[in-house]
């Protein structure tokens, strides 16, 4: 359990870190078009990505994003049982814009490196 010394990150761990890093952005993107409740967000992410490994992972993050003022939560009664709906706040919209921009820049830089490595390797 104790870590702190530099070492090579195993492939599984690297993928896990990448997945965790993308999850907050994915959740904000899921509620960007309109309000969604927890299970709806999970379904949306499961359809489009493999980011959600444990369904319970989402709820603590939703709670934190709400406390950080990026999401607004509201309980609404439905036919079967009440649901907690989330929507982006103005601060959340601004944050999402920055995150998407950062993500695109980061991805394009890594892509360039991958292409350069592939071209050099092909010589």
């Amino acid at each position: 359990m104790l870590t702190g010394f530099p070492m090579t990150v195993p492939a599984d761990s690297w993928t896990e870190q990448l997945r965790r890093g993308g999850l907050e952005l994915a959740i904000l993107l899921a509620v960007a078009p309109g309000t969604r409740y927890g299970l709806e967000i999970i379904r949306h992410l499961q359809e489009a990505t493999d980011l959600v490994v444990g369904e319970g992972t989402i709820y603590p993050i939703l709670g934190r994003l709400t406390r950080d003022g990026l999401l607004q939560a509201e309980w609404q009664a439905s036919a079967a049982h009440p649901r907690k709906y989330y929507r982006l706040t103005d601060a959340g919209t601004r944050r999402l814009r920055v995150m998407v921009q950062d993500w695109r820049m980061f991805a394009s830089k890594i892509d360039r490196l991958v292409q350069a490595a592939a071209q050099e390797g092909g010589k």
């Binding site: 927890g38 299970l39 369904e55 319970g56 709820y59 079967a80 049982h81 009440p82 649901r83 907690k84």
Partner: peptide, 11 residues
């Protein structure tokens, strides 16, 4: 938090 998880389970 429990109410939200219960809503998830019920659905």
């Amino acid at each position: 938090a429990v109410r939200e998880v219960e809503s998830h389970i019920r659905e």
